[in-house]
Design a protein around this nucleic acid. Structure first.
Length: 467
RNA sequence: GGCGACGUAGCCAAGUGGUUAAGGCAGGGGUCUGCAAAACCCCUAUCGUCGGUUCGAUUCCGACCGUCGCCUCCA
């Protein structure tokens, strides 16, 4: 088997054949104009899962993700908050990193920003003008779509069809309704940068073309982002980049991540119907949030729901128990148990089928059950495989939210367990149960097993940890 | 209007032209336990509707119904 990736460019899944090593991935990041919401989390968790899959399958990966730290929205937000656009970008970029760390999203290798690449963006626009793909009107620079015959190949909006829906009222100076801004002259009071065309700032699409080229090269393997970026953003990126370099494809594979909806509608900052990640991570275990997101395939629409999050939370204790605590488990390479290897193969097959995370999650749960079913001889091996699966899915199972219990608390609990053991020996069931119920009320759960009684702390929705 | 996605058990969600249609949550029965908890075993789906192709379709094609999205800033 080999990895297959759905490519928006061709409209079907294709066998993944990288251009070289490392595999170069660029992901359109966020505009830090507010706290990230669940929709952002979905994109970045899914992309992180793709990256982990590639690494698991033996590829070396170089992953770049940008921040659009200056645009109309950050400027607007700055006015609302009474701070500078720069401060807005910094504040919400920090919020992004805080939430992503909780979700165990691996950091990208580089996080370019618009402001950090301003000179090179300007040079990129200059080259496009020189080559006749851009034209200057006043302080604005426009990309001339008619000069790029391949326009529309990603989104399927070509020719006349592409015209429909484009803003009807032609902006002053535009020669063709499809043309889009490479550089926008600054309005009074707006942040601006000096350029050959006067003070202004980059159009929305040129930043990504520039940053891809500067950080990864003229042609890359995978360019991802959310579905809504297909048109016009990614379409325009292709036009700019391929026009400049004369090389195609600009990016070989274009997987696009689907929506998160809230109450039947697409969740978005502009509709104000979003749930911030901060808020969700406050109320639910980060591992449950990540699991919830991964339980839907990246291309399918995902309906946000508290019930879904709660269901994912409830599935964690069993998974954590099978995952185990401190035990040393063998490395995946040393595994000989046939059932363990078979499970891993089935897991990999799901990954290779266009990053089928729900399928992979299914195999992971089967593996967790197999840990309990396996013979003593095989258990560690199955557990090792389970741990690898959890790692590839990136579930932060071992992250612990609550404060560790103090030594005194632990001694006290152990004393009560001893006391209860004696009561049980004397068949003083009422008193023994009173101890157990009392601890339960404090969030301490006792479990009697063949080796004695163990205790766990129940934190939040369905979360428990052996301490 | 143009382009596209989706409709599988109570809920969420994979998947397949023909043996038993994953997995999670919820529910039911059982084993274990002093009772629980955990764990394990078992049970719960004629795959939106109507046609067509086929020896055979939930899976392919068409129509219809329903839900959602992009075409304007959007992850």
């Amino acid at each position: 088997m080999s990895l297959r990736i759905f490519n928006t460019l061709s409209g079907r899944a294709e066998v993944f054949e990288p251009l070289g090593t490392p595999v170069r991935i660029y992901c359109c990041g966020m505009t830090p104009k507010f706290h990230p919401h669940i929709g952002h989390a979905r994109l970045f968790v899914d992309v992180d899962f793709m990256r982990r899959t590639l690494e698991h399958l033996g590829y070396e990966v170089r992953h770049v993700q940008n921040f659009t730290d200056i645009d109309d929205k950050t400027i607007l937000r700055a006015e609302e908050e009474g701070i500078t656009a720069e401060e807005v970008a910094r504040k919400y970029t920090e919020s992004y990193f805080a939430s992503m760390a909780q979700l165990a999203v691996k950091p990208a290798d580089e996080y370019p920003t618009v402001t950090g690449y301003m000179e090179r963006i300007i040079q990129f626009v200059e080259r496009l003008v020189e080559k006749g793909f851009g034209y200057v009107v006043g302080g604005d620079v426009w990309f001339s779509v008619s000069r790029f015959p391949d326009y529309g190949k990603l989104s399927g909006r070509a020719g006349d069809a592409g015209l429909i829906g484009v803003r009807k009222d032609l902006e002053p100076g535009k020669r063709d309704p499809r043309d889009f801004a490479l550089w926008k002259a600054a309005k009074p009071g707006e942040p601006s940068w000096r350029s050959p065309w006067g003070p202004g700032r980059p159009g929305w699409h040129i930043e990504c073309s520039t940053m891809v080229r500067e950080t990864l090269g003229d042609q890359i393997d995978i360019h991802c982002g959310a579905e809504d970026l297909i048109f016009p953003h990614h379409e325009n990126e292709i036009a700019q980049s391929e026009a400049l370099t004369g090389l195609e494809p600009f990016a070989k594979y274009w997987p696009h991540v689907g929506w998160v909806t809230a109450e039947g509608e697409k969740m978005s900052h502009s509709l104000w119907n979003f749930v911030t990640l901060q808020d969700v991570l406050e109320r639910f275990d980060p591992a449950a949030v990540r699991l919830f997101l991964l339980q839907t395939h990246y291309r399918s629409p995902l309906a946000f729901s508290e019930e879904g999050l709660a269901a994912s939370s409830r599935s964690l204790p069993a998974l954590r128990a099978a995952y185990g605590q401190e035990e040393n488990v063998p490395g995946v390479a040393e595994i000989s148990s046939e059932s363990a290897l078979h499970l891993l193969q089935r897991f990999d097959a799901q990954l290779e089928d266009d990053f089928n995370s729900p399928g992979a999650v299914g195999v992971m749960f089967e593996t967790a059950h197999e840990v309990n079913r396996a013979s003593d001889a095989d258990r560690d091996q199955v557990r090792a495989v389970l741990r690898r699966m959890v790692e590839v899915l990136g579930l932060p199972l071992s992250a612990r939210r609550s404060e560790p219990a103090s030594t005194e608390t632990i001694l006290l609990i152990e004393f009560l367990i001893e006391l209860r053991a004696e009561l049980r020996q004397e068949k003083q069931w009422v008193l023994a149960d009173k101890v157990r119920d009392g601890l339960k009320a404090l969030g301490i759960v006792l479990k009697d097993g063949p080796q004695g009684t163990i205790w766990e702390r129940e934190d939040r929705e369905g979360r428990s940890a052996v301490i």
